[in-house]
Design a protein around this nucleic acid. Sequence first.
DNA 1: CCGAATTATTGATCTGGTTCACTATACAAA
DNA 2: TTTGTATAGTGAACCAGATCAATAATTCGG
Lengths: 241, 241
Amino acid sequence: MNQINNSVDEMTMRTPIQCSQCSMQSICVPAGLVPSDVEILDKSSREPHLYNKRSVVFSEDRPLTSVFAIKSGSVKCYTIDSNGKQQITSFHLVGDIVGLEALANGKASTYCETLETSMLCEIKLNKLFAQELPKVENNLLQLMSRRLANCSKHYLNIVNTSAEQKVIAFLLSISTHMHQHGLSRNEYRLPMTRTDIANYLGLAVETVSRIFTSLKEESLIDTKQSILTINNLNALERRVA
Amino acid sequence: MNQINNSVDEMTMRTPIQCSQCSMQSICVPAGLVPSDVEILDKSSREPHLYNKRSVVFSEDRPLTSVFAIKSGSVKCYTIDSNGKQQITSFHLVGDIVGLEALANGKASTYCETLETSMLCEIKLNKLFAQELPKVENNLLQLMSRRLANCSKHYLNIVNTSAEQKVIAFLLSISTHMHQHGLSRNEYRLPMTRTDIANYLGLAVETVSRIFTSLKEESLIDTKQSILTINNLNALERRVA
DNA sequence: CCGAATTATTGATCTGGTTCACTATACAAA
DNA sequence: TTTGTATAGTGAACCAGATCAATAATTCGG
């Protein structure tokens, strides 16, 4: 585990914050609620928990009536196909909410596994819905709608682009996410392995590795272990356009 | 236009049915509402309309605060990339609801265009939300959640499968949809062109064409113009497993 | 801090699917 | 009907990315 994340985790453990004071409020489910509503949420639906690296948060086809807000760390969601092969369907970083696909039938449609020590906040939907807070449901709708839009976007990355474009688009999407959460868009840690990236993008590991190398040779990026540095954001953006 | 669809369209035109009597009730937004709620929906949010083939229902980035239920016919959703190239992100058939991705920011994230003469029922969300019907929002949530789950499923079809598996999975997904809507799962009309299918699956038209030919040679399917017949559903399913 | 195990990189070869070029069929308008 | 245009099918050459193989670098448990 890297130091930055550990310190965040420890801090969160020491002083478990309320929804009403949470830094994720603007993007999380309670966003837009009047204070009294947040109190209800605080009492009924919040349950922060620290997960070790490679912990399974929920399993495919198992009952699931919660969503999880990622307060720190990251997860991958994947399914296991009939040949036993893992196929990653999404990565989620700080500030994301996981488990929305389960809402329809109360069963998780993927596995969800932490990529590093992570702090997740469980939001129990049955309790939430029992309160009948239209505002919360509205926020959830917004969230899912955005997720759907993102889904098509990722789809576009996958269809009809070269392997290089896929990898660049992937790096840029993380960069954007980091930026939206007040972190550096030009330097961040890649919590997933090359193998995971390749799996996610539908490429061979070797191809991903070669593309990283060639981007480094062109000085567009740098990597020091899992830290990725973007040297020329514009040039990268131009390549995926 | 084919006869079957025309007759449905005409019938719908002659006797514009209410939400309360609509055959799509069980899958559409009003599902699960008490009768009085459906009445509200009838009055405030419903606006069925007949579209000619190739009509643009909504345009990317344009304000959109409605969703559309497909009562008959079909549509494709697509974006135009920076090079002016169309990229289809989804097809929607009878019984689907389109436009959910726009909910987040009130702007359509894709174009939506009819593939044939189609009857769409516009459901105006602002009016709907003004009523504050938690049940309706709940249904929308269910719908979007299911869509998200489907999204990953389609994603799996695209990543790490051969061209043949992509095409078969595509045909099977339509078959399943037809079956779920009480139509034959072994014989249906493909409302989209080969070019559209290829675009959607990220393949060359020629590849799609060749795969259709080879599946016909193996007697797994038959095609007579746009009518597709599945001769051996199990065999096809085995190939994508 | 060390050794085992996992993960990443690099090179050489091979192939599925694209591309290009062309023909055939379907369909709508005159 | 005929004619023009869009769509579908087929063949041959080529190439991006997969696969196979081997080595280097990291990570992690003790």
